[in-house]
Design a protein around this nucleic acid. Structure first.
Lengths: 172, 172
DNA sequence: TAGTGCATGTAATGCGTTACATGATTTC
DNA sequence: GAAATCATGTAACGCATTACATGCACTA
């Protein structure tokens, strides 16, 4: 029962109740996409596999001629989710092109190099605005489910401030 | 002249002077690896391609029987680097398994869910220690080249504090 | 009736890592 | 003389995205 990157998302999203592959995809876009994504190309095959392994059960939810396959967590599925939640790995993978630019920015005239830092600050500001929009629309999540969004908001605020501080420091 | 993810690293690393593929790999491990990585499987083919495109020039630096190919930036290579540095894209890609765990942690008994947050804090603390070690050994970088490390230090400090604050908030 | 959203799925593609092959030189 | 480091390179693999194919149902 080896797991891929989508496995936990699928199991987790089914925790609150049965969903279709399409539903899961939508839920991911609304919530985890900015730190954990999932594409149809992963989702549908994975659901099949999990059903074959007995971690989820599939029932037909078609209405009329429109096909719809609804998946639910089974008991083994619940256990698998809980087991994964208790793992202690804390893998953070970061890929940040602007940071790479900053690293090489000494190759630019100073004014332009400072522009790279300003771009960074603006990037944080933009993303912050997006998350604030999302936060407005979001209902009252349970305690822990609310944390990633809170984290995102705090992170971009911090990042913006970091840029401002460095800009201050680097401009006489 | 389409560029892949390694292109800018290669050009940037050659800015200060000629290097071999092996040298570049080592430089990446020491400096950019935590936000931008590069493997031999990318590096060597890319160096060939860049040489074919005239962005770098290859000279033989073999000593005795040990082969060594040393690459240097050409004028077009310098321009290409500068052009990339002036781009304004600010793509930050994040993949954070612990954040995903937090998102689903309501499925755990509260005590264990808080453990997920504590794991996160410990992860930040560990990485912070690693970067502090690196910072000790690092010489005086030029202004901008020093920024990514400064960022890393500040980020993990912030992240640790964020966890502490949330732990406080969630424990009565 | 045209457009949008619901819904499932796969094939092709691209990208990056891992693993391996090979061998020289330096250091302990 | 063993181990570590220098050094180049490629093939296989795994993983994720993109793009496409297909069609129903609702709504403006």
């Amino acid at each position: 029962m080896s797991r891929s990157a989508v496995t936990p998302v699928v199991l987790g999203m089914l925790w609150h109740g049965p969903l279709s592959g399409y539903d899961i995809k939508r839920a991911v876009e609304r919530s985890t996409a900015f730190f954990w994504r999932a594409s149809y190309g992963q989702l549908y095959p994975e659901l099949k596999r999990l059903a074959a392994d007995g971690l989820v059960s599939a029932t037909d939810g078609s209405s009329g001629d429109r096909p719809r396959r609804v998946y639910a967590l089974t008991e083994p599925g619940r256990s698998a989710l809980a087991a994964w939640l208790r793992e202690e790995r804390t893998t953070v993978q970061l890929r940040d092109e602007n940071l790479l630019r900053l690293f090489f920015a000494d190759a630019l005239p100073r004014a332009q190099a400072l522009g790279v830092l300003r771009d960074r600050r603006d990037g944080h500001a933009e993303r912050l605005a997006v998350l604030q929009q999302i936060a407005k629309g979001a209902g009252a999540d349970p305690d822990f489910a609310a944390l990633p969004l809170r984290w995102g908001l705090a992170f971009h605020e911090w990042g913006r401030r970091w840029c401002d501080d460095e800009l201050q420091r680097l401009t006489p």
